[in-house]
Design a protein around this nucleic acid. Structure first.
Lengths: 139, 139
DNA sequence: TATAAATTTGTAATGATTACAAATATTAAA
DNA sequence: TTTAATATTTGTAATCATTACAAATTTATA
């Protein structure tokens, strides 16, 4: 069951334009943690007028409004996740795939404060080898 | 007490050239998780012939040999940590400071495998507000 | 010392992201 | 509905971190 895209945006106080809905839908339907460029390449054939700047602007907007997660998993480019609920990520060191995994950082680590620090967010990032790659050498 | 730089490099099978020792020393003495550029700017006055390419090459080499950690905490540039033992990082959302904290991911999360995945590394990243910034608005 | 190998350097390219201003679409006011 | 104001999208040009590459230098070896 795919959540209603428009109401998801409205819930996050984002006005649901054509482009914004397409990008949000893409992230909700594709759990591959795509880059901005991957999103652009996928949507450009569907919305021929779409510009890459709009993809960047929209992702920034969606992240600011909490509708999308920006992952710092990739050294090269930012990656985005339409699933904002608490979860961890796994990056395969061989094929580079980034998978969602069902460990919830906020459950695993019950901290809101460490010393003087006020914690608002905990991203737990695993690296290793996925099932397809664990018998191969790293690239 | 500052660990001997040269033996640290030798332990990691890195030949201790002048430039490599200077970069390694900088990382061990400065726990600020500097970027490549910050390292270059700090060392260039001391080693006038130092080139930025050497800083990049050396950091890459040190990371490959496990002498330095590459953090994916910053969206913009890579950040490096001379402390390679298991620990977590905290990024202040106001001032951008990245602090080491004494939570050890591998202690906090006792996993070597999740499903089919073979875990070799777990980076736990906290975000929030540091003691200096927690009463201010985010930038 | 001569030669080979490793390291460092500088310049030019790459590639992700952003700045900016024009074009277009949407909304509100008259 | 037209008009004006506002928001959104677009394309181009700039920025900036990082890498490619080949020449220069240093270090190790014969």
């Amino acid at each position: 069951m795919i959540t209603n895209i428009k109401s998801h945006l409205l819930n996050h106080k984002v006005k649901p334009s054509l482009q914004r809905m397409a990008i949000m839908r893409y992230l909700m339907e594709n759990k591959t943690h795509p880059t901005a460029d991957e999103i652009y390449l996928a949507l450009h054939p569907v919305i021929p007028t779409l510009s890459k700047t709009t993809v960047y602007n929209t992702l920034k907007l969606l992240v600011e409004h909490g509708a999308v997660l920006n992952l710092s998993v990739d050294e090269k480019n930012a990656r985005y996740d339409g699933v904002t609920k608490d979860h961890a990520h796994f990056k395969c060191l061989t094929c580079g795939a980034i998978l969602d995994i069902g460990v919830r950082p906020s459950e695993a680590i019950y901290v809101k404060n460490i010393g003087d620090l006020k914690i608002t967010e905990a991203q737990l990032m695993y690296k290793g080898y996925c099932s397809n790659c664990k018998n191969q050498q790293p690239q």
